[in-house]
Design a protein around this nucleic acid. Structure first.
Lengths: 351, 351
DNA sequence: TTGTACGCGTTATCAG
DNA sequence: CTGATAACGCGTACAA
C-alpha cells in the first residue's frame, strides 16, 4: 500500500457554504454555532447547504479565532492496567456529550515525561487538563499557572492539595481495610504496596495503614511492608520476599486488586489457603474481583465518578461557571471471601 | 474551590521573542522549527530568549499556518478491557517520539458513535486516523476520502480491505487453535465468541473455525457456538447456555482471554476440571494468562506492533514518504496448561 | 437579523 | 541567511 502523495484536499470552506446559501460567511458561522441568533429560514438554508457540501469546520482556524480548542487533555500514569481506564472512559464520554475531544497520554509514572506531555498538550491548546495525583514536577505547576489553563487533579481528596482536586481519602481507605481486618481478629497485618516514588496515593495509603494500626495499638514492623511493581510476576516475587523475612502475617493488604490477585495466585501456587491461612484485601473492585473463587474482599473506588466529575469541573471552569468540588468521594468496603478470622495462634480471636 | 474567571493569560507570542532576540518573527519561527536554516549565533540567541520568556507556540495558529496539527486520532471500541490498551500505548509512545499528540475516543462497538467521533477528530484537524477493524459506516469512508486524511485500519490483515490495514489473519488464528486441539484428539469443539455485529474480527475467527473443522472432516453444529459480551458474568452465562444444549464439547475456543477466563471461572465454580474434563483456549495472551493455575493456552497477538506500525504508517504518509505495510503480522500459539487430550469417550485419541 | 471588516498567532513566500 | 508581508479559515465587534 504505497500510495501517492495525498494531493489537494477538497476542502470546503465557510465561504463556499455562504455562497451556496446566498448569505455571508458570518451568517453561516452564526447559523452553525449560534443558531439562536439567526432567523429560522436562513438557519435551514445554511444547514442544508453545509450538509450538501459536506462542510466540516477547520478546527485550527476556529480555535484561533475563538480562542478555544474544544479539547481537554488527560495525563495518566499508564494504560497498562485497568485502574484508570474506567475514569478515562467516563471522562471521554462526558467530553463527547459536550462536543469536546480528549487528548490522552500516559507518562509511566515519570514526572519528567508527564511535564513534557503536559507542555505539548498546552501547546496544542487544550482548554483544560486532567492530572492524576497531587505530586507533579514544579515546572508543571509553573506552566499551568503561566498558561492559565484550568486543571484538576484526581485520585486524591480536595484537602490533599491547594489546587482543585477530586477523589477520595487514601488514608481513610486503608483505615477501612485495617479496621475490617482487626475486627476479624488480625493483629499481624502486612502490606504489599506499589512503588512510592512519585505516587502520593500509595504514600497516603501507607500512612493510613500505619496510623490505623497505631490506633489499635498494633505494631507495623518494617518487615511487614514490601514493595512491588504492578505486574503479577513482580507481585509474586514480593510475596516470596515477605516470606523470606519470616512467617507471613495473617493478613495482607494489597495496594490494588492487581496486586491482590498476584498474591492470591502465589498463595494458590504454594498451597496456602485463602482465607483460612491468610486473608487478602485489594483496592479497586475490578470486575474479576467478584468472580474469583473465593471472591476478593476489596474497596470499591469511584473510578467512574472521578472521570465524570473531572470533566464537569473543567467544562464549568472553561465556561466561567461556578463549580464546587466535593471534599471527597465515598468508598465502599466490599467484603467477600478472601478475608476471615486469622488461624488461631494464641488466644481469643477478637476482644 | 470556586475560582474567579481565568483572567487574561499572560501569553508570550512569537513577536515578543523576536523583539527580545532582536530578530524578526520569521527568524524565530525558523530557529525553533527549522534550526538548520538559521545561523548558529541567531539560533542560540532565539533559543535563549524563548526559554527566558517561557514561550510556548500557539498550536492553533501554527496548525492554521502550517496546515498540520501534529495530532493523530485513534478510535477504539472500548477501554474497558486491556485488549486494546497495549496497542494504544505503543501508538502513543511512537507519536510522542515524533512530537505528535494522540486524540483518543472509544465508540463502544457502535458505528454511529465511531463515525461521529471520527468526524469530530477530523474537524479538530488530526493529521491521520487509526481505526480498529475494517467494517465502518460508509459515511466514515466518504468523510475520510473527502477530507483526504490518511488512515489505517488495524487488527486485520492487509487482504481484509482495499484500504491500508495492519494486523493478523483472524481466520488463521482460529485455524492454529483448532489444529492444536484436533492434534490433541478433540473432535467435538465449541466456541464462545463475542457479538459479531460490527465486529469483523469475530466473524473472521468464526469463519476460520468453521473452515478448519471442515478441513478435518469434523462437524460444527450450531449448538456448539454461543455468543457473549466481554464481561465475566456474561461469559459465565454463556457457558451455562451451552451446557443447556446438551453435554459440553471436550474443548472450548474463546474469542479472547477475557472470555477464556470467564469460562475457566465458571468451570471451576462447577467443579469441572480443566484440562481434564474440558480444554480451553484463549486469544491475546494477557499478562494473567501465564499466571493462572493451570496456565491458559492462548494465542499471542502482536498488540504492541500493531500500535507502533500504525503510528509509523501514518507518520510516513503525512511526510509523503513511501511506506509498505506487512501483509500480516505473525501469531504465536502459547501452549500452557488448559489444553490436554480429551477424556476418552470412544477410541484412539489421535490419528 | 444580517453583512463588513478586522484580528487571532504562525508559517511560507519571496525579495534582498 | 534574514526580514517583510501575505496567507491560513474562522469568529465577532460593529455598523447597517
Amino acid at each position: 500500500m504505497t500510495r501517492a502523495p495525498p494531493s489537494a484536499r477538497p476542502k470546503v470552506r465557510i465561504e463556499e457554504v455562504a455562497r451556496a446559501a446566498k448569505v455571508s460567511a458570518a451568517t453561516v458561522s452564526r447559523a452553525l454555532n449560534n443558531p439562536g441568533l439567526v432567523s429560522f429560514a436562513l438557519r435551514t438554508k445554511v444547514d442544508t447547504a453545509a450538509q450538501a457540501l459536506g462542510y466540516v469546520a477547520h478546527g485550527a482556524a476556529r480555535a484561533l479565532a475563538s480562542r478555544r480548542s474544544r479539547a481537554l487533555g488527560a495525563l495518566v500514569p499508564t494504560f497498562a492496567n485497568t485502574i484508570f481506564s474506567d475514569a478515562i472512559s467516563a471522562f471521554q464520554r462526558r467530553l463527547e456529550a459536550a462536543n469536546y475531544t480528549m487528548l490522552l497520554a500516559a507518562f509511566d509514572y515519570d514526572p519528567e515525561v508527564e511535564y513534557r506531555s503536559a507542555r505539548t498538550m498546552i501547546e496544542r491548546g487544550v482548554d483544560g487538563l486532567m492530572l492524576v495525583g497531587v505530586t507533579h514536577d514544579p515546572r508543571l505547576f509553573a506552566l499551568l499557572d503561566a498558561s492559565g489553563v484550568p486543571f484538576v487533579q484526581t485520585w486524591a481528596p480536595a484537602k490533599a492539595s491547594p489546587h482543585p482536586t477530586i477523589g477520595y481519602d487514601n488514608a481513610a481507605l486503608t483505615r477501612m481495610v485495617v479496621d475490617h481486618l482487626v475486627s476479624l481478629g488480625h493483629r499481624d497485618i502486612g502490606m504489599v504496596a506499589g512503588v512510592t516514588e512519585h505516587n502520593d496515593r500509595v504514600r497516603a495509603r501507607i500512612a493510613g495503614m500505619r496510623a490505623t494500626l497505631q490506633l489499635h495499638s498494633l505494631p507495623f514492623e518494617e518487615r511487614r511492608m514490601v514493595f512491588t511493581e504492578y505486574r503479577l510476576g513482580a507481585v509474586r516475587d514480593a510475596f516470596r520476599e515477605m516470606q523470606g523475612r519470616g512467617p507471613l502475617p495473617t493478613a495482607l493488604v494489597a495496594n490494588n486488586d492487581i496486586v491482590a490477585i498476584g498474591l492470591l495466585l502465589e498463595a494458590q501456587a504454594q498451597g496456602i489457603a485463602v482465607p483460612r491461612d491468610l486473608s487478602v484485601v485489594g483496592v479497586g473492585d475490578l470486575e474479576i474481583a467478584a468472580h474469583l473463587q473465593p471472591g476478593l474482599t476489596t474497596v470499591r473506588t469511584p473510578k467512574h465518578s472521578i472521570g465524570t466529575l473531572a470533566a464537569e469541573y473543567l467544562l464549568a471552569r472553561i465556561d466561567d461557571r461556578a463549580v464546587s468540588l466535593p471534599a471527597e468521594l465515598a468508598l465502599e468496603l466490599i467484603i467477600r471471601g478472601t478475608t476471615a478470622p486469622p488461624p488461631d495462634r494464641r488466644k481469643d480471636p477478637s476482644p
